[in-house]
Design a protein around this nucleic acid. Structure first.
Length: 596
DNA sequence: TCCCCTTTGAAGTAT
DNA sequence: ATACTTCAAAGGGGA
């Protein structure tokens, strides 16, 4: 399989591997080559933003493609997980590890999101429809999906959705790019799924394309983009219609879209536009607050005009985080973002390719829109902003310092895993060996990519469970694919390559690379791990299954109970190693920091 | 009040 | 070309 013969220039080999989880194996065999090709396409499309085509074929293939193979497996897995979770887990994984498409629900609530009345993804993906406790609210103003502080995950996209722009009068400058067929203006960069993006709406199995509704159905004009770039405080040229505004408000809660803004007539600032001094989160929307901060607002406004901070578009993972944070918070009752993020990171790795693809695509859209909205903007702008002020650069310094502390020499990391004194094994080579031992790092790590050392189980490396994610992240390696082509540098970020680690829950004690894993029965592992983690949990600790890590893993939060405990769901996993057959080298730990 | 933590990915700068 | 750095979100917690 990995063998995507066919030269997967994307280094998809690994990727493919990751997708090969048990249940899939057989199914795949039949549709094998084509399916794999699809996957490869997906990947490439994800990575490749170029919208060259070659896709027509892939699209068609995608359509023919059977429901996500992983679905059955996933369902299975989910069941077991849920079950296990109920029994063991503190609740961290009460809900399926796979978020499915929660946001799909949005459209249902806010009709505007699915103007065409098309079936909401939710409806189509029954199994994936979950609850998001308290996530949906009707603001007094407009119906919006309001996460607690979290905007609906998809909102960002929605915000950019073409559908929300008045189809009527697209800006002249956009007219140049018109869909030949529909005559509908579209963004320079076709907003719809990239041609070669195999994941056409609703075609990927039963999984509706994440951007399904983004795909121009009748020719929605693209957002009028200002031609003037946007050093301008606000893209004045940006014309947004009411629907857009509502969308924006969805991405940013109503209060985040202050009417008093000296913005465009629509008063809708792009989400990315943030004034340096004012945090988005601050709910200035409240009337009371408005009143109270009238004066300050005035001041701020001035400052705003002086320097508007246009934020970077969110990447796939950020989008995912936005979407899932609330859920995790609800499940774990955790609030510490650091801990939540760790969990999310694990889950991200556990996502299937399709699911991740969804986010990659969304992110791509975001970037596109961002580019359109702020043609002149560059990430550098933000760099400068901060650098001038101060900040940053400490991280590395810190790491350096840390690495000095752990300077144990491990000639061959693979052969001899660093004696991780700390249960929470560092996730990456970087953490493991430190900056001063980069020669020991695996390639991807050196390139800041995902560490493959633990995934590929190279050499005698008993493919320790991925350090972090725990087994979760460990991609199910197919025997043949056990070793990702190192050369796959060409590679895309590992995350893309191997991502899918389909929560193949393999028993912790089983080496990831072990062949039989592929065929084995659905492993309980996640639950087990969580469970074991829970076992270590301290009474008072959160019930999320996070272990109360007595250790210092979080150098930063010495005594913080909840935080620290949360901070290591995987830590718990690590911890659990004691519970896990010793063969599992170093249970991954969320704690990326190596501790003393 | 500011910054850190923590995650991944994108995009920048530096070598 | 590769390596490294910064910034996006988030909010509790430390200094």
């Amino acid at each position: 399989m990995p063998q995507l013969n066919g030269g997967d220039d994307l280094g998809a080999n690994d990727e493919m591997i990751s997708f090969k989880d048990e249940g899939e194996q057989e199914e795949k065999i039949s549709e094998n080559s084509s399916a794999e090709r699809d996957l490869a396409d997906v990947k490439s499309s994800l990575v490749n933003e170029s919208e060259t085509n070659q896709n027509s074929s892939s699209d068609s293939e995608a359509e023919r493609r059977p429901p996500p193979r992983s679905e059955t497996f996933r369902d299975k897995t989910r069941e077991s997980l849920e079950e296990a979770a109920k029994r063991q887990d503190g609740g961290l994984f009460k809900s399926p590890p796979y978020p499915g498409y929660p946001f799909i629900m949005i459209p249902d609530l806010t009709s505007p999101y699915l103007p065409n009345g098309s079936l909401s993804p939710t409806a189509r993906t029954g199994p994936f429809c979950w609850e998001f406790p308290g996530q949906f609210h009707l603001s007094n103003k407009v119906p919006v999906v309001q996460h607690p502080h979290h905007v609906h995950p998809l909102t960002p996209l929605i915000t950019y959705s073409n559908e929300h722009f008045t189809p009527g009068n697209p800006p002249p400058h956009l007219q140049t790019d018109v869909d030949p067929k529909t005559g509908i203006p579209r963004p320079p960069h076709p907003p719809d799924i990239s041609p070669y993006y195999p994941l056409s709406p609703g075609t990927v199995g039963q999984i509706p394309h994440p951007l399904g509704w983004l795909v121009p159905q009748q020719g929605q004009p693209v957002y009028p983009i200002t031609t003037g770039g946007f050093r301008h405080p606000y893209p004045t040229a940006l014309t947004v219609n009411a629907s857009m505004s509502s969308l924006l408000s969805s991405r940013f809660p109503p209060h985040m879209v202050p009417p008093h803004h000296s913005l465009h007539t629509t008063g809708i600032p792009h989400p990315a536009i943030v004034t340096p001094n004012v945090k988005q989160e601050s709910s200035h929307s409240d009337i009371s607050s408005l009143n109270s901060s009238k004066q300050t607002d005035a001041k701020k406004e001035e400052e705003k005009k002086k320097q508007v901070h246009i934020k970077k578009p969110l990447n796939a993972f950020m989008l995912y985080m936005k979407e899932m944070r609330a859920k995790v918070v609800a499940e774990c009752t955790l609030k510490e973002s650091a801990a939540i993020n760790q969990i999310l990171g694990r889950r991200w790795h556990a996502l299937s390719r399709e699911e991740q693809a969804k986010y990659y695509e969304l992110a791509r859209k975001e970037r596109q829109l961002h580019m359109q909205l702020y043609p002149g903007w560059s990430a550098r702008d933000n760099y400068a902003a901060n650098q001038q002020g101060k900040r940053k650069k400490r991280k590395r310094e810190k790491q350096q310092a840390e690495s000095n502390e752990h300077r144990e020499y491990f000639p061959n990391p693979c052969l001899s895993l660093p004696p991780i004194t700390d249960l929470s094994a560092p996730k990456k080579c970087r953490a493991r060996f430190g900056l001063d031992q980069q020669n020991n790092w695996c390639g991807p790590c050196r390139r800041k990519k995902k560490c493959i050392r633990y995934i590929q189980g190279e050499g005698s490396c008993a493919s320790p469970p991925s350090t972090d994610g725990s087994l979760l992240d460990s991609p199910p390696l197919s025997p043949s694919s056990a070793v990702p082509s190192p050369s796959s540098k060409e590679s895309k970020p590992q995350t893309e390559q191997m991502q899918p680690l389909s929560l193949t829950m393999k028993p912790a004690h089983q080496p990831l690379h072990h062949p039989h894993l592929l065929a084995g029965p659905p492993p309980p592992s996640l639950a087990q791990l969580e469970n074991s983690a829970a076992a270590g949990k301290t009474p008072g600790a959160s019930h999320n299954g996070a272990l109360e890590h007595g250790d210092v893993s979080s150098s930063r939060q010495p005594g913080s109970s909840v935080a620290s405990s949360l901070a290591r769901p995987s830590a718990s996993l690590c911890h659990s190693h004691s519970l896990i057959p010793s063969t599992a080298p170093q249970p991954l730990s969320l704690v990326t920091k190596s501790i003393e």
